[in-house]
């Protein structure tokens, strides 16, 4: 027992007792001396203690299951632990170590003599070669050709010079329109002032050529240009759902609620607010899109289901160099 007490006292003295460092007398000081700041030392110690407590708190919170707001408590514990440590370091930097402000020299701007020597060294290493220019060209040629060879495999990344793949869509004449769950869309189910998303039956929904926006307009409001005449199925029109500006899904329909200043319902892309008029063949009314939404010709079959009558009147998705000249393909 007494021995244990001795050990305890010794440990305390070692831990808490102030140590007088025996300074080496032989060398003069390099760092200026600062008076011991008793209070600051205590503050630093307290902050370090707080930091340890919070870090342990993090471990405890992690170990406790079913704690409400565990994420918040974990963040609080770790954040406070780090902030307390930061505080300790900053107080130590400001109050415990010498607060020196020294003047020094900037490095010289340049070394002219060494520059000359380097130049000379490089020159003299190759001055015995007579066909210098030719060799340089040869080296350049080999390097360039190797570089070309090195980047060639990058062409395997994707279709190169095969724009045809960008034009393909799964739509073809006779293909039925289905909803997200694969149920065929009936013409009779399509109501006015509502927006429907439809897909080609049996195709991959995720392809950019697949999704459609389908809306029904009163026949008298329909004002399709001559080349799109007959694309509607008794007032039901279908457009590619992919915006021709930057590719987001055109998922807003400005109907029936729209400002009196806006003349008619419109399809809007929520990314950059390109606004298309469904009654005039998807022409751009406002926003950054540069060409109309591609329109899909529709028909109603004998059972009343909606079917495609062909492919889109233009390429689907964001525009690219030369896009206007091309047609969508099946």
């Amino acid at each position: 027992m007494a021995k244990a007490k001795d050990w305890l006292v010794a440990a305390l003295v070692l831990l808490v007792g102030k140590r007088g460092y025996a300074r080496r007398d032989e060398a003069p000081r390099l760092v200026s001396k600062r008076e011991t700041d008793d209070r600051a030392e205590r503050v630093v110690l307290a902050l370090l203690g707080l930091s340890s407590l919070c870090a342990l708190g993090f471990v405890v919170v992690y170990a406790l299951d079913r704690l409400p707001a565990q994420t918040q408590l974990l963040g609080l514990a770790l954040g406070l632990s780090l902030l307390a440590l930061a505080g300790a370091l900053i107080v130590a930097g400001k109050r415990l170590v010498p607060d020196e402000e020294l003047a020094g020299e900037y490095p010289p701007a340049a070394h002219p003599a060494e520059q000359d020597a380097v130049e000379q060294l490089v020159d003299e290493g190759v001055d015995g070669i007579s066909r210098r220019r030719l060799l340089k060209l040869g080296l350049l040629g080999a390097g360039g050709a190797l570089g070309l060879a090195a980047i060639t495999p990058a062409l395997s990344f994707g279709p190169f010079l095969r724009v045809k793949e960008l034009l393909a869509t799964p739509w073809r004449s006779g293909r039925r329109l289905v909803d997200e769950n694969g149920r065929p869309l009936r013409a009779a189910d399509v109501e006015e002032k509502a927006l429907y998303t439809a897909f080609p039956e049996g195709a991959n929904d995720e392809e950019q050529g697949a999704p459609l926006v389908v809306v029904r307009l009163p026949k008298r409001e329909l004002d399709l240009p001559a080349e799109l005449a007959g694309y509607d199925a008794d007032g039901i029109v279908a457009y590619s759902k992919i915006c021709t500006h930057a590719g987001c899904a055109v998922s807003l329909y400005r109907a029936p609620l729209f400002r009196p200043t806006e003349p008619r319902p419109a399809l809007v892309c929520p990314c950059h607010y390109s606004t298309f008029d469904p009654s005039t063949g998807g022409t751009v009314v406002f926003g950054p899109a540069g060409r109309p939404l591609p329109m899909l010709p529709l028909e109603t079959d004998a059972k009343g289901y909606l079917r495609a009558k062909g492919n889109f009147d233009g390429p689907v998705g964001p525009s690219w160099w030369g896009v206007r000249n091309r047609k969508a393909s099946s």
Partner: peptide
Amino acid sequence: IVGAPLWPAQTPRSLGLMVGVAGVLFLLGG
């Protein structure tokens, strides 16, 4: 050039800033 030397003056300040930035980020994250 006039300034505080890396050791001892700057070291605890810079480390303090590093730990402090981490602390603020974890507080935000939590």
